[in-house]
């Protein structure tokens, strides 16, 4: 028996919004430590890794490890049927071929349940090595989303250059060129507005705007985003989900032909 309950359906809607543009389907691996999903996007360029810890759920029970392959388009249809303030419970029997989403209104007067067929997905899991990154940038997630959106107008690729002074995002194309520089903030009223840089070595890397823009769909999950970079290895774009876990996106830098 698997059962996981979240007080608010909003968080699950936001998680789905953060992955459904990149993935058509995904396997949710459930164990007593929580729920994990790892999948490459359809073109195998980026990797999405979602971790939801069991202690972040209002209720969590997982008697036996189960892997639930879900069509994310179908899951999105079902989640549309939940109000933001509904409690959501995900349930499945051991070895079941369906999963049930149950939504309860705050006053418990409306209860709906939606059963969805599970899929058998033959997905390979990738082992992600622990890496010490040359640069780790933390910045407001909305600011990062804005920069990715703005610079994507100029080129399909964006250069990210990080030094201890700050981080610079650049793009150039037929129209001209664009540069956005962010300095490390000295003092801020709110922690969410801070830009901070931990640098061992400066790095300059080129990334596809299209994927960075897809990652920023996770912005509603967290006020801050963390970019971890080293030469010649994939960038990690991480959004923490308060008290519940995180979503990480991996994207390899572009290389000269």
């Amino acid at each position: 028996m698997f059962e996981a309950r979240l007080i608010s359906a909003t968080i699950l809607k936001k998680i789905l919004d953060a992955i459904k543009d990149l993935l058509n389907e995904g396997t949710f691996d459930c164990s007593d430590s929580g729920i994990q999903l790892q999948a490459m996007d359809n073109s195998h360029v980026s990797l999405v890794s979602l971790t939801l810890r069991s202690d972040g759920f209002d209720k969590f029970r997982c008697d036996r490890n189960i892997s639930m392959g879900m069509n994310l388009g179908s899951m999105a249809k079902i989640l549309k049927c939940a109000n933001n303030d509904d409690t959501v419970t995900i349930k499945a029997q051991d070895n079941a071929d369906t999963v049930t989403f149950m939504f309860e209104s705050p006053n418990h007067e409306k209860v709906s349940d939606y059963e969805m067929k599970l899929m058998n997905l033959d997905q390979e899991h990738l082992g992600i090595p622990e890496t010490d990154y040359s640069c780790v940038v933390r910045m407001p997630s909305m600011e990062f989303a804005r920069i990715c959106r703005d610079l994507a107008q100029f080129s399909e690729s964006m250069l990210i250059c990080c030094t201890k002074e700050g981080v610079k995002f650049s793009a150039s194309g037929d129209v001209g060129s664009a540069n956005v520089k962010l300095a490390q903030t000295s003092s801020v009223d709110k922690e969410e507005e801070a830009v901070s840089i931990e640098m061992q070595e400066p790095v300059t890397l080129t990334f596809a705007c299209r994927y960075l823009n897809a990652f920023t769909k996770a912005s509603p999950l967290s006020g801050q985003v963390q970019l971890s970079m080293s030469a010649d290895v994939p960038l990690v774009v991480e959004y923490r989900i308060q008290d519940l876990g995180h979503i990480r996106y991996y994207l390899a830098p572009k290389i000269e032909d």
Partner: peptide, 13 residues
């Protein structure tokens, strides 16, 4: 510029 696949960087488990 070329875009390498992410699979090239991580080992298959």
């Amino acid at each position: 510029m070329a875009q390498p696949s992410i699979a090239a960087f991580f080992n298959t488990r």
